[in-house]
Write a protein that binds this DNA or RNA. Sequence first.
DNA 1: CCAATAACCAAGTAATTTAGTCAACTATAT
DNA 2: ATATAGTTGACTAAATTACTTGGTTATTGG
Lengths: 169, 169
Amino acid sequence: MRLTTKGRYAVTAMLDLAIHSHCDPISLAEISKRQEISLSYLEQLFSKLRQAELVVSVRGPGGGYKLSRSLDDIFVAQIVDAVNESIDATSCQGKGNCQHGEVCLTHHLWSDLSDQIHHFLSGISLEKLVDRGDVKSISQRQNNVALEDVDHEDLNQSDLRVIQTSHTA
Amino acid sequence: MRLTTKGRYAVTAMLDLAIHSHCDPISLAEISKRQEISLSYLEQLFSKLRQAELVVSVRGPGGGYKLSRSLDDIFVAQIVDAVNESIDATSCQGKGNCQHGEVCLTHHLWSDLSDQIHHFLSGISLEKLVDRGDVKSISQRQNNVALEDVDHEDLNQSDLRVIQTSHTA
DNA sequence: CCAATAACCAAGTAATTTAGTCAACTATAT
DNA sequence: ATATAGTTGACTAAATTACTTGGTTATTGG
Ligand code: FES
Ligand code: FES
């Protein structure tokens, strides 16, 4: 059973994408800045998310990633599954053979737990998350912080406009 | 979030204890043989289980461990908690401060998930596990295997009697 | 008493996994 | 052309897990 920073980062990044993608693709650099996740690490994660067909990529300037389908059709379980091997609590990957090919004493317990977790995370779509009040306010805060950070850098008007737009939209 | 071999071993060992302890204490050597867990590793785990007051120890020959209370008053969640730090899916240990002291975008999701898991594992007592049909049959198989293993070693009659007793009881 | 037993304890190590870096390459918009 | 931004693979550092080693204490049966 592994649910670590990797899975959390993936869900966080996908939620960031869900919040900010209205039509234009979002670059990993933006997500990296807002969610404070290493850009190179995000690249690895999105490679897997793309393979799982949860996102589509647009290359070249102005490119980035977009969600492959609507918010109510992407679930947290799918995201975690895409980057982690699985959210499986057994040590046998559900095969029931971890004691010399035979099922061990606690297999069914872990199997049941896995089902529980999977069922829970399968019930939560990105849409549900985006609609939450706390997510909205936290996102606002992050936009403001990102804006302040950008102020301290050299940037041209078009950069600022992009950020302002996604901020106030 | 960590639920690895450590927690699984702990629950397995406690369940073994629950199945075999009728009155006499059970030595870690026995559990080690039946569940195929390193003896020294078991010692470390039981050190924590004892600190959590889930088991009591009896030193000296014929000694071992016994459950500290009845089967229906020990829950899987307590066992996992005792050896793992916690079954917490957040990266902030529930404090809500993983982004510069502020709550991050997905905190509530992981917090809810942690509650779910904890609630599920809190509802499963050793008694429930012992009563399961599959646990009974798997335990029988393990006893037979342990018996065969012992046959191949040098042993005296009293050793054999102990194992037979716990096997057929 | 004494030797065997089995819990207790501390330190260290090997293997694995995670989190992150680096460097090169490809497609595309301006 | 050139800058942007995704794509890929290999590589590294840190953390954690799983396990070993080598003791010490307490207790019991002979
Ligand atoms: S966890 Fe599946 S057989 Fe042991
Ligand atoms: S996980 Fe709790 S604040 Fe981020």
